[in-house]
Simulated scan of single mutants.
Amino acid sequence: MRLGTDHVVVRVPATSANLGPGFDAMGLALGVHDEIEVQLVASDDVRVEVIGEGAGEVPDGADHLVVRALQHTLELAGAPLTGVHLRCTNQIPHGRGLGSSAAAVVSGVVAARGLLADPHALDARTMLGIATEFEGHPDNAAPALRGGATLAWAGHDGPRAVDLEVDPRIHATVLVPDVRLATSRARGVLPEQVPHADAAFTAGRAALLVEALARRPELLLDATEDRLHQDYRAEVMSATAELVRSLRAAGLAAAVSGAGPSVLVLTTQEQRPMLDDLVGELLGDLAGSASGWHVGHPVIDTTGATCRSVARK
């Protein structure tokens, strides 16, 4: 497979997975983005510059996740491997349950597709499959690629995903703490088995969530209730668990964002004043002041990952 260009810029949204009961399956793209500039070079040189989130922390060479995903995808496509220079301008917080690793993987996969002379050689299912290979499950990768809300699953012939309709009356709020939590630690506290009644309850709520997202936002409180993973994770994110419980007790559809420790709240515009007042009070109770947590109101990103070629100067 020939390369069609040597210079692209990729933009990928943050994502919030699970949405309560949709464990490892549902996700939502949010209007916070990483932008990755990829330039191939005629040598073996690999260089990574990171601005913003992760600067000075993530690898600056071949071990960088974007580089690994990019080179793996190009290799699978049969394209020639060269050196690469990356410039990463990151806004997605790391280790907060907002899909930073999925964004990095998707950036590499989408950049590889954009570099090919025939991008159609990598279709949507192939890209999801590659991203899932890195991530282990497709709940973040699917909305990062496609935008909006998605439902993803492991089909007999690889990962699959479909888009879920989102009522325009629904707005997202994220509460992001300064502290981080490794996904491996959050998954490590989950039991190998759960009571049948809890599994059945959560399956029903996940089905209800599809309807609540699409047409019935008044059902979001019930539809985001979970008994499969959030209570078990409370021991490693007590402040997050307390926030979720308090917000839900007030009638707001709050859930742990991905593996945490951020919190996602889905509301209608009419609920926003109550949410804003309550969040200030709750964060003050948790930390003595609102410092340590950051409140954002990102739009729901309906575009997903984008890629554009950069003309040679």
Rank of each mutant, 00 (worst) to 15 (best):
P273A: 10
M274D: 13
S289F: 07
M274C: 13
L278D: 06
G288K: 09
L282A: 05
G292L: 07
L278K: 06
S289D: 15
D277K: 13
L278N: 02
V263K: 00
S291L: 11
L264A: 00
V279T: 14
P261V: 01
S262K: 00
Q271T: 07
S262N: 02
A287T: 12
P261S: 02
G284W: 08
V279P: 06
D285L: 14
S289C: 11
G288D: 07
L264K: 00
G288W: 04
V279Y: 03
R272A: 09
D285C: 09
A290Y: 04
R272G: 06
D285F: 08
L283E: 04
Q269H: 13
R272T: 10
G284L: 08
S262C: 02
S289W: 07
T268E: 08
L266K: 03
R272C: 09
M274N: 11
G284H: 09
E281N: 12
D276T: 14
P261N: 02
L278Q: 06
R272H: 10
Q269P: 11
R272V: 12
Q269E: 15
V263A: 00
A287Y: 04
L264F: 01
L286C: 04
Q269Y: 11
A290S: 08
L264W: 00
L278R: 06
G280W: 10
M274V: 14
M274R: 15
A259L: 05
A287G: 10
V265N: 01
G280K: 14
L278V: 09
G292D: 03
E270N: 12
L282Q: 04
L264M: 04
R272S: 10
T268M: 07
D277Y: 09
L278G: 02
G288A: 09
R272P: 07
M274F: 14
L275H: 03
L282T: 05
E281H: 11
L283F: 02
G284D: 10
P273W: 07
T267W: 07
L264R: 01
D276L: 15
S291F: 08
M274W: 14
L282C: 06
V263E: 01
L278H: 05
S291A: 12
D276H: 13
D285Q: 13
L275K: 02
L283A: 03
A287C: 14
T268D: 07
G292Y: 01
L286R: 05
P261R: 00
T268I: 07
L266R: 05
V279G: 02
R272E: 13
E281D: 15
D276W: 10
L266N: 05
M274L: 15
G280N: 11
L283G: 04
E270H: 13
V263M: 03
L283K: 03
G288E: 05
G280L: 10
G292P: 05
